[in-house]
């Protein structure tokens, strides 16, 4: 195991560990920005101090000056710093763009936040509370939702965070490149025990991660669990292959555009499928009569995640 010790050992660190290329990149950005900031401000500090000393009221110095306005000068110190800093706007926006587009091959972790703990689930069904194990070198996508108030999953060593909202999925992703143990936090204030809603994220080599998965113990994968729930909640009655009711077939649904009765299409995303299970009256599908009952308040968030994982695996026959 090539994992360093607890993060608490870095007691005097003045710079946080960077465990991904993106994190290093953010560090470069911040350092460059700081340099430009100093370039813009240190002259002001020096000038003010210098003027205050040289032009003290009781000193005899030459106080004649050109004019008490100078539009060109003012425009230049208005606009030059602005354009200089715009570089960093563009740089930050470009990195943000990358952060908003997770790679397709990312390992997908499902996270649920609630007062006051995190629950993480790996695709194989392995569940962890407050701690998370991820492999190094592979993009990891965390898809999350909250059961109660707004939380925020914050991974400082990867320089990323994302709010975890009730009623809606949000995502963040990163590629760890440095095995070790790092901290994770809830950074959005969420009540009494907000400050202990934290844990550790362990980055392991892919081999160690496989080993950990096999040890972590899980009876079934998320998709397999979803398949069982699909049957238990009676979904198969209408959506199954042998169903007599005319309901939309779910095979190959995920990620495809669905035609709406009101016109237009909606892409079948995680949020769409979740919304359709909880509020079937909403977004009626073209060509089908709405007969499905609502499952709001019936299916909890973690089972919704399993169902969606299962629906994603349903392939169109023959494909």
């Amino acid at each position: 195991m090539s994992v360093s010790g607890s993060p608490a050992e870095h007691a005097l660190a003045l710079w946080p560990p960077a465990a991904s290329h993106a994190a290093t990149h953010v560090d470069y950005l911040i350092l460059a920005f700081t340099a430009v900031t100093l370039l813009l401000t240190v002259p002001i500090f020096l000038a003010i101090t210098y003027f205050a000393l040289v032009y003290r009221a009781n000193r005899r110095v030459d106080r004649t000056h050109g004019s008490d306005r100078n539009v060109k000068l003012e425009l230049s110190w208005m606009l030059i710093p602005f354009f200089l800093t715009l570089t960093f706007f563009a740089w930050g926006a470009q990195m943000f763009d990358t952060a908003k587009h997770p790679p397709a091959n990312a390992l997908r972790i499902e996270a649920i936040g609630r007062q006051w703990m995190w629950k993480f689930q790996h695709p194989g069904g392995q569940a962890e509370i407050n701690d998370l194990h991820v492999p190094a070198g592979q993009p990891v996508l965390v898809n999350m939702i909250s059961q109660d108030v707004i939380h925020s999953l914050y991974l400082p060593s990867f320089r990323v965070q994302m709010e975890t909202l009730p009623g809606r999925y949000t995502q963040l992703w990163f590629t760890a490149n440095l095995p070790g143990i790092y901290r994770l936090y809830c950074s959005e204030y969420c009540g009494t025990d907000h400050s202990v809603m934290d844990g550790q994220i362990t980055v392991q080599s892919p081999r160690d991660y496989e080993h950990w998965l096999s040890q972590a113990g899980s009876s079934q994968s998320l998709a397999a669990g979803g398949k069982r729930l699909f049957a238990n909640y009676g979904c198969t009655g209408c959506h199954g292959a042998a169903a007599t009711v005319r309901a939309p077939m779910l095979a190959g649904l995920y990620g495809r555009p669905v035609p709406m009765e009101a016109g237009g299409t909606v892409t079948a995303s995680d949020d769409y499928i979740r919304d359709k299970i909880l509020n079937p009256d909403h977004n009626l599908i073209a060509g089908y009569k709405q007969v499905m009952p609502s499952f709001a308040g019936v299916i909890p968030e973690d089972e919704l995640i399993q169902l969606i994982a299962y629906i994603k695996t349903m392939q169109e026959p023959g494909s």
Partner: peptide, 23 residues
């Protein structure tokens, strides 16, 4: 004020805010 204002620009930078938000 200059220091406060410029660190505000740091926070207005998208990728940096993803790290520093709520800290």
């Amino acid at each position: 004020f200059v220091l406060g204002g410029l660190t505000g620009l740091f926070l207005a930078t998208l990728a940096v805010d993803a790290h520093l938000h709520d800290t």
